[in-house]
Each structure stands twice: as C-alpha cells, then as structure tokens.
Amino acid sequence: MSEERTKAEDRRERVLPIAEARETGPDARSIDRRHALKVMALAAAAPGLASCGPGPGGEAGAAGASAGAGGIPAGGTPGQVTNPNARGDLWDPDLLSPVVPWQRTLEPGELESLAVLCDVILPADDRSPSASEVGAHDFIDEWVSAPYEALQEGGVLIRGGLVWLDREARTRFGNGAPSASVRFRDLTPAQQQAICDDICDPERAEGGPFEAPSLFFDRVRYLTLTAFWTTAEGMDDLQYIGNTPLTQWDPPPPEVLRHIGLA
C-alpha cells in the first residue's frame, strides 16, 4: 500500500496479473531495471562473480537473429503436427510443435548445484517428487539462456548466487578445508537449511548482508515454482482438473458451494 517503490514491489513486478485470463509471463518490460542494477552490484561485490556470467548482452535482436542453431526440443513431447503457415522464428513460432530454439548455457557443475537448491526449495514428499526430479534445474537453464536481456541478467544473478552459496558453505562449514572440498550441494540438509534460512526472505534481508543472496534465492524459488507445478506431476499433485472437453458446463459441485458457505 506504500506510495514509495519498495523492493517488494520490484519483486511483485515479476508476478504478473491473471487479468482477462491471458497467459502471462516474463515479459522483459516487467522486470525492473533497478533489479538489474542490484544484480550488477552483487556481481561487483563478490570476487570472481563478474567473470562467470554471460554478461549484460544487448537487447535481443530482431526476428530470428538470436535463435541459436540448437533446436533443442522443449520439456514436453513435441507435437506430432507441424504448422506449415508458421515461419518458425521467435515472432512466428510453430505453436503446434514447440521447440526451444536457443542453446542452454549453464555448466554441468552449476546444474548439479542448482538441482540441489531446487530440491531444498521443493522437496519430494508422499504426494509428488522433488523439483529436480521433474527437471526444475533444466528449466532454469532454459530460462537464463533465453535471448532476452532481462532473463540473461537473471542468469548473472543465479550463476553468481551459486558461487556465493559455495563460498558461504565453505566459510560456515569448511573447517579450514582446501577451498574446493566443500560445496553447498555436499552439506547436510540441516547445514543447507541454516544458510537458506538467512536468505529465504528478501523483505527481512533488505539492507543487511544477505540482501543480494536473498534476491538470488527468491529468483530461483520463483522459477522452481513455475517449473515444478507446470509438470504432469505438479498438476496431479494440485489436482488441477480441466483442459479437457466437456459436453456441458455445470455449476460448482455441492461440496465446493458448502466450502465457500454458499450451499
């Protein structure tokens, strides 16, 4: 409700409204530039971070210019039908047989660490598998590798954050061991939680030493939520019912009306 722009507001800008039942997403416009500045600040503050990201690439090019030659299929089953009317570039993609036309850029070690973090964020339980078991870390790789400036800035944040996590692991739990021997992904669940408890709430972390890492954690969590709940396992867990043709549309069932007190 504040009239001043807050970090919370910056974060909320990534959570687009469901207005008019339109499908929404990470429009580059929706991610505030100030957020990118914070990313840069994080990179500058942590030694070794500046060199590991893809860098602030230019604005994504015009039609087709930025599509790599990868042709990596998307996470799901590519459609059996293709659309001959579509040009197949980013402005006019084949909607019937979608592909991710850019190369993924994260390195194997980064993906390994990311998978562990994704599972800390959404672990397996008796209703569904963990986030990494349904490929959340691969989706984040797809996201940070996309030919969009704001998403690549997110990639800088995430890659830098992974380095920070390992450094924090070494600082807290390394016991003076040689630098490469302790990584976040090797910690015990309790140790991982100890670190994450400090960076899980950007509002609480604001202005303190964990501010930048909290933005990293928040971004990974945001993407992990999308990645996990959009899978078949995630939708089953939620008991989403729909996307299936009906012969007629009925009012909500009685148990639903009772639930909202309108029976």
Partner: peptide, 8 residues
C-alpha cells in the same frame, strides 16, 4: 518455451 510465458 519458458513454460508459455510472455516475451517481447
């Protein structure tokens, strides 16, 4: 791509 999210 991008779980159907919006892009430019």
């Amino acid at each position: 791509p991008l779980r159907g999210g919006g892009t430019r």
